[in-house]
Amino acid sequence: MPATVSRRGFLKALVLAWAGAAAGLDSLKESLRSVLIPAGTTLHVRPPAHSVGRKAR
C-alpha cells in the first residue's frame, strides 16, 4: 500500500467515484421505477362519433 496519496490522485479518485455513484444511482432509480410502476398502456381512447353530450359543469 502506498505510504501517501497525492492530492491530485485523491481528487481524481474522488471525481471518478462521484461520477460512478451518480450514474449508478440513476440507473438504480430507473430499474426500481420499472419494478414499482408499470409501463403505460398503448390503448387509444377515442371520443364517440355521434353522441350528444352535455356542457361541462
Partner: peptide
Amino acid sequence: FLGLMGATAAFAAGCSRPDRG
C-alpha cells in the same frame, strides 16, 4: 475541476433512460 464535476453531473443526468412516452 469544477468544470469536470459539472460535466459529470450533466452526463449522469442526461444519460437517464429516455422517458418511456
